[in-house]
Write a protein that binds this DNA or RNA. Sequence first.
DNA 1: ACGAAAACCGATAAGCAATCGGTTTTATAA
DNA 2: TTATAAAACCGATTGCTTATCGGTTTTCGT
Lengths: 132, 132
Amino acid sequence: MFLGELEKQVLQYLWSSPNVDAKQVHAALAKQRDSSPNTVQSALERLFKKGLLSREKQGHAYLYRAKIKREELIAKLIDSVASDFISQGENSLVAAFSSVSSDMDEGQLDQLEKLIEIQRSQLKQSKSNADK
Amino acid sequence: MFLGELEKQVLQYLWSSPNVDAKQVHAALAKQRDSSPNTVQSALERLFKKGLLSREKQGHAYLYRAKIKREELIAKLIDSVASDFISQGENSLVAAFSSVSSDMDEGQLDQLEKLIEIQRSQLKQSKSNADK
DNA sequence: ACGAAAACCGATAAGCAATCGGTTTTATAA
DNA sequence: TTATAAAACCGATTGCTTATCGGTTTTCGT
């Protein structure tokens, strides 16, 4: 999955302001880039076709929302670039991590361990919910 | 940074067999893809220009080697896709992992924690070396 | 210095994002 | 209900990048 520059900016904006129409997106992006309203429209349509946005008509215009959370998208992107180099069987997410970890210092490793703990407790949580 | 399909295959092969010339790369890739020798040449040149390969003349031909380890490349790719969505100040690698961790199960989290330990001991190692 | 081998150049095709003008569709207000 | 303004949609164009190779130039060894 590849995203162009404008598409990324659109997504960023939609995460911060969900349910906006093309006009509003264009207005918001005016500070960063000088594209015509139609160009922004096209990017929204492209993202919609790619399944990254949902939309709902409101009067004349569609209101767009990101269909995926920022973190989920990043995870997907990571998986897509990493899995090209990771063979079947290897777990690509863990393997990807082992690729990255060599650039980390102690503080970062600490943070990471905290994240793991958080993740563990969330798993416990959803497990007990599943058990009713 | 974006790599095409042939470029990825070339890199993969060079990791498994460093110091080979274009002819050998072409021969090796014949099983996976039906490209002319010149096409493979071009891919090698492109990768060389991108700084991903080094080479050294041996007789008529250059022998190519990957300039970067597989893990390092994956780490770079991850950083490049993730940093687009991560603001200054956030540490993008750790943030990227927080994005990925929600897709992980307990076993993966365990593996991950082991990797962190390994990484920690390597840091200690290089630290004591630095202290002479 | 000759000839074969390999590198390099240039042209072409294909795919995709960005661009935006122009046309069609559509929601509302008269 | 129909006119009209707003927005969606379509199509063409540009620019960038990989893949593709044929053909030419360079280069090394004999």
